[in-house]
């Protein structure tokens, strides 16, 4: 008997977009509310895991040609590099600043350097979690 998972694939096309939107929301809400880079990265990784479950490994690798080990290394590099930004101005390591800037469309906006640090954390979490799950699944 030929088996297929057409229901799962059809649902996944819609649900993955919802999960990615929630991940971006959690990442941006993390400055003043619960959320942040770590949990945003975990939700982003769960979207990738759902893709890997719904379709197979080769198709997702062809559609998303990213080496997730490189993503993890890049995220860790970005996080540490923002720490050295404070050292260059004579402040302690990992010192972060914020300021209010007048942007043309958004009005007065709070811009921080913590956002870059959190982006590095999110990239590191996505890379590590997807690499762990893929290397567990490949042993079968």
């Amino acid at each position: 008997m030929r088996t297929n998972n057409v229901i799962l694939r059809t649902v996944t096309r819609i649900v993955v977009i919802i999960i990615l939107t929630l991940a971006v929301y959690l990442f941006l809400a993390g400055h003043h509310a619960p959320g942040g880079g770590f949990i945003g990265g975990l939700v982003l990784a769960s979207a990738f895991v759902l893709l890997f479950i719904a379709v197979d490994m080769e198709t997702v690798r062809k559609a998303v040609p990213i080496d997730f080990k490189l993503v993890a290394a890049l995220g860790a590099f970005i996080s540490v590099a923002t720490g050295f930004g404070g050292v260059m101005f004579g402040e302690p390591f990992l010192n972060q600043v914020f300021g209010y800037v007048e942007l043309p469309f958004f009005g007065e906006t709070e811009l921080t350097t913590v956002t870059i640090f959190e982006a590095g954390v999110a990239l590191a979490v996505v890379g590590v979690v997807v690499t762990i799950i893929l290397s567990i699944a490949e042993d079968v």
Binding site: I53, D56, E58, I133
Partner: peptide, 25 residues
């Protein structure tokens, strides 16, 4: 909700197919 969805799908696929992430189509 998301984690419950993914967890239930993984268990169901493990019961039906015996493998969760297939190698190729």
């Amino acid at each position: 909700g998301i984690l419950a969805f993914i967890g239930t799908i993984s268990f169901s696929k493990f019961i039906e197919r015996g493998v969760i992430i297939e190698r190729k189509r």
